[in-house]
Design a protein around this nucleic acid. Structure first.
Lengths: 344, 344
DNA sequence: TTGTATGCGTTATCAT
DNA sequence: ATGATAACGCATACAA
């Protein structure tokens, strides 16, 4: 194999007949260099195809132009769109991303963060981190060591930089929409572990109170795995069950589109037509909401925007590490498609 | 902010009252150290929470325990599952991944590879790279500089390490399945730029010859963007058109599931029932094939396996850089679901 | 304007 | 068994 070693700054210096320092100056354009020597150096650089070793540079500045991104699962549509949003903005600022999967395991999460610190990333963005690690103060501690932005996670009293979609308003609007269409018995479907589910359930409960809906604890359905095909399967099971057992329920609010798909399949299995006989509303506005039949009415939370804002935010914090913490909230928007209709 | 600097090996040495070298030896366990001193050092390490700086280490060994992954688009289901497969195997070998999006742009692709080289990744896995860059010999050149594995890309005469799914066999089996069900006029739907589409079209043409099907160039449909929601839209348009114009066609082979969804929507729009009146077969077996109604008969190419094998392969090459190039082919499998039926 | 020397945090070589 | 010192490739304070 060719294995020809990469040229170093010393090689360039020798070829150009100048000192290492001069080459460095030409590279970084941070000190004046005589035009003639600059030409010489540039020629040498080109000839040797010299490109600086970013490791060496990082060692000196303790900066790597790298942002670590933590995600529970890259194969999940929600997260990949957020990642794309992040990528699109930080790329322009010369950063690249270091992506890690946690599989939703709190311990993995910590391990991965350690790994990133070892690799001297300049900042970390944690997408949907486990509530447990936020509450315990773990992330607050990390936040003091290294620039950190948390997406879709939050806890009062824990000081970090947060970027959140407004799950509260989104949920409220969706529920109100159903209410205005005449629905009174709304099933609520959530996954077990996530801050975002907690928020939504909270709103659901308050909503029932506010609108004096007959509240039934059994109308709150919980599945284990929140994102992906398993969520579809699990949701199908629990939704089928409740429709069979409670003939009053006329609609369902799902905490994400996967669950909504499961509900769709449950209705299909029971030969109940959506939306004519049963309405379903999803959350996230992932691509699958446009693929299903009928297409899903859902709450858009601007995932790409979520990523972009987080990307910008992390860059700000990196630049000025003493910036005070902020909680940025992104608006949601109800997307009307074909899975919701008025109550018969 | 706390900003307390990370402890270095020197801090540990001082605290333990030994030399830097000894600490290094304790860390790496590669030289004998007296039990007593080892204890001392370990205690100091713990106390200072010392973790070695991977950048410094990388600078010496010119290794970073990092694998760069190039993907046209992380938000695409196909790629994210492959990435997950890669991740799952290399993680155990102490590597982490460096992920880059190319947006399918050949120039971006080169830029990203440069970037990875600058960051001294130990190896690169390129998923669905642009044919152009393979043909031009660009990747062959890279392959000589750094361990490289190409997933789902190939060109005869270009020497690289390839991992491919057997698109030929998969396509052939799908077509034969349709044929055996009585279909004779099969529409072929592909995207414009990708090796995998070329392979499939090639098989399609040969298949028509072999089975003496009346060949019609118009039955080959081409859309621009191959992956994602755009593909759905574009496919819908062209499929609607051909169904309207050619009443002989009774089924369609799509080069991926997105396109198949588009075809599904086209049929729906024309009130043609699938599979009773029109059969559709997809490719990839992404999760969407289980979400659509009807669910999609499709060709599974074991995306996770594709990733795992590539992960193992890159590790092999890294360990022994003089290993000869290999072309590894993964089997595909037809998944029977509900979008295909016999010809009326 | 340019060059010398030192340091970033580690590991490897050579002594002792 | 342990330690001093020279690399790794680059940037910069200081000198000239």
């Amino acid at each position: 194999m060719d294995q020809q070693k990469r040229a170093t700054i010393a090689d360039v210096a020798k070829l150009a007949g100048v000192s290492i320092t001069t080459v460095s100056r030409v590279m970084n354009k941070n000190y004046p260099v005589k035009e003639a020597t600059r030409k010489k150096v540039e020629k040498a650089i080109e000839e040797l195809e010299f490109k600086p070793n970013l490791l060496a540079r990082g060692l000196i500045h303790n900066k790597t132009q790298t942002i670590g991104i933590l995600t529970p699962s890259i194969e999940n549509l929600f997260f990949s769109e957020v990642v794309k949003g992040i990528d699109s903005v930080i790329k322009n600022k010369g950063y690249t991303t270091f992506l890690c999967n946690t599989e939703g395991d709190p311990e993995q999460e910590k391990l991965m963060i350690d790994n990133m610190k070892d690799r001297s990333v300049d900042g970390i963005i944690a997408i949907n981190p486990r509530t447990k690690n936020i509450k315990s103060g773990y992330y607050e501690g990390i936040s003091k060591q290294i620039p950190l932005v948390i997406i879709n996670g939050y806890n009062r009293g824990i000081h970090c930089n947060y970027v959140l979609n407004d799950g509260e308003v989104g949920t409220y609007e969706a529920l109100k929409y159903l209410y205005e269409l005449g629905h009174r018995d709304i099933v609520f479907l959530r996954g077990r572990h996530s801050y975002s589910y907690d928020v939504k359930e909270d709103i659901y409960r308050k909503f029932c109170e506010e609108f004096k809906l007959e509240f039934d604890e059994d109308n709150i359905l919980i599945i284990e795995d929140g994102n992906g095909l398993e969520a579809v399967e699990q949701s199908k099971v629990v939704v089928e069950k409740i429709i069979r057992e409670n003939d009053k329920v006329s609609c369902l609010f799902a905490c994400n589109d996967w669950m909504a798909v499961g509900a769709l399949k449950a209705a299909k299995a029971l030969s109940i037509s959506v939306p004519e006989e049963f309405s379903i509303i999803g959350f996230d506005n992932t691509i699958i909401s446009q693929i299903t039949e009928p297409s899903l009415t859902t709450v858009d939370q601007n995932m790409s925007g979520l990523g972009q804002i987080s990307g910008n935010r992390i860059c700000e914090i990196i630049k000025d590490r003493d910036k005070e913490n902020k909680k940025i909230i992104i608006e949601t928007r109800l997307i009307h498609r074909n899975s919701v209709a008025g109550r018969l």
